[in-house]
Design a protein around this nucleic acid. Structure first.
Lengths: 339, 339
DNA sequence: GTCGAGTTTGACACCGGTGTCACGATATGA
DNA sequence: TCATATCGTGACACCGGTGTCAAACTCGAC
């Protein structure tokens, strides 16, 4: 298991180091049979280039970072595996940076991390995708990055996005088609741009169907289970409670379902409850939840792909790639109850 | 944002590169005021050593890998953040390797990964912790590693462990103390050593209390929600169904709870249901679940710590560090129903 | 005052690759 | 036929640090 270096290969193939390097990096201007000979030597010697040395010489690290702060563990791991899929194929390692978005010295911390790690590129997930000061920092430090699901300044960098507004709109249309008109809505964390988009979709569908949006049917949640319990309780305490509740994510919806169970409100017969994200809990809870599925893994994989492209060919035009969400109907939604 | 190299610092401090390097690595035999002067230059110039170069020269990568294959997303992210905590403090990056444990060419894939990435160390999580051929491979390739929660050959490497058998034993004792004697058990995936330990704890507690262990009250699950539904259904179909069901993890238990909800079996009044792992679902489901909490983050942090120690000081004796599990009583368990 | 041991420091090669440039060989055009 | 462009290749410096070794300096003991 002794290391095979470039010199060994050079000797074995009877060419210079530089030519080995050329073959390694797929450069042109290497004759066909030289290339073949070198590649044979690679095989025979089991040669693996040393990423440290390559990096030092060419000022790369073959490291891609992923920055996140998301309570949805399944979202995190899905994003990771999606991105990793591409990274491994392209010879990059993925290093992870869970960071506290609320932290006061966040920007400083991030700057330290970037300086220390010498990343080739960084994948930003919400809510970092919309953090303008961070984007500036990255520009200033000349670190390439992609953003997943940003909502502002799409022209600033390559991005992958889905259409939360549209998905939310579809969900509400679906509820309306079941006969619901008193549709409650629980908003997500105001720091996440997705929260606003999801509300927009709700409003759009309501307006389009000429249903008056009642303030008292809209509650402010925070993407957490607990906020779901609280908001759910408040909504169900109204004089005229809603016949359907659409929560901005599955955790909130799960909180609502818990309140229903406690109060023996039968879902979906007395109340429909819908979530957003297709988190595992949406499947594991009872009744299983109607929700929106976001193609997380493919999005992350694509994000990594365009990031690597932009690392390699210095500033291509800033691609924005769109993905479609999908409405998943399960047991927690049904026709409006007859009075 | 131009790079400051070791030469710049050397010039600025009026000493040689080598002395800078000495200060950087906290070597002894540097006079106090030279050290102070160099450190001042570090500050003033904002010097950051280049990990690539350091790695190339000293044959390190400052990369620690984490290998896992676990359906429990929250377990994964907790392990990651725990380990990362230590890694960042010690100047290492964490790179992640989700791999399919069932894959046929697993060992080959891993070998490739290791060769390509030049890791300084690797953190193994179950079920990889017990994969002997992998341990051999790592030894052969001279890659340091720690194992989290292994159950075989603890002397082979540094490990962090908790006592699944004991925790499971405590859970069953708790159920017995509530008056239960017909206690069903749903086993976990046979590939995970934890499954066997959890069963052992069950057996021990039952035997100790002189309760006959009935075969028909033990089912084979697979750590999945679906297997929980199936096993739950079977257990509840028995002529004499159990009054309590202890599932080997929370997903299984959630499946059982779903079956109860469907059949309008009131938990915990007619049936107690307990899980293992304290996954988020155990809190978000209704009724919230009695379960076992494993100190995942501290364990992972400690694992990283002893790994780094063993990387630095070549083969210290193989530490094994123990952690305690904790029984968390929530709403899904209660006294045995009166007939 | 001399000697030996220990401390502090720097010169220089080296880690394993890549960038630059120059050279010879072959192809192209006038 | 000769000048010029293009291709294929290697010599050599260089990326930013660390390891080795020897020189210079300090200090206490004799």
């Amino acid at each position: 298991m002794k290391k095979v270096t470039i010199n060994d290969v050079a000797r074995h193939a009877g060419v210079s180091k530089k030519t080995i390097s050329r073959v390694l990096n797929n450069e042109q201007n290497v004759s066909i049979d030289t290339r073949a000979r070198v590649q044979r030597s690679f095989k025979e010697l089991g040669y693996r280039p040393n990423p440290q040395a390559r990096g030092l010489a060419s000022n790369q690290s073959f490291l891609i970072g992923m920055l996140y702060d998301n309570p949805n563990k399944s979202y995190i791991t899905d994003t990771q595996t999606g991105a990793l899929d591409t990274c491994q194929r392209e010879g990059y390692n993925l290093v992870i940076y869970p960071e506290d978005f609320e932290s006061l010295d966040l920007l400083e911390r991030l700057e330290q991390l970037l300086i220390n790690s010498h990343l080739d590129g960084l994948i930003l997930t919400p809510p970092f995708s919309d953090m303008l000061p961070l984007l500036e920092l990255l520009d200033r430090m000349a670190v390439s990055y992609v953003r997943i699901a940003p909502s502002v300044c799409l022209e600033l960098s390559p991005c992958v996005i889905s259409n939360d507004t549209e998905a939310s709109y579809q969900m509400v249309r679906y509820l309306i088609s079941l006969g619901h008109t008193r549709i409650g809505f629980i908003k997500g964390h105001p720091d996440h741009s997705a929260s606003h988009k999801r509300l927009d979709g709700y409003m759009k569908a309501m307006n389009e169907a000429d249903i008056t949006v009642v303030d008292e049917l809209i509650e402010q949640g925070f993407f957490t289970f607990r906020s779901g319990e609280e908001c759910g309780r408040r909504l169900l305490n109204r004089e005229q409670p809603p016949t359907a509740i659409f929560a901005s994510n599955d955790f909130i919806a799960a909180g609502v379902l818990k309140v229903c169970a406690q109060r023996k409100i039968s879902v979906p017969h007395q109340l429909s409850v819908c979530g957003f994200d297709n988190a595992p809990i949406s499947r594991y809870i009872w009744p299983s939840m109607t929700t929106i599925k976001n193609p997380i893994k493919p999005m992350a994989a694509e994000a990594a792909k365009i990031l690597i492209k932009s690392i390699r060919e210095e500033s291509l035009e800033n691609t924005v790639i769109k993905f479609e969400d999908e409405l998943i109907v399960r047991e927690s939604s049904g026709p409006v109850p007859v009075q």
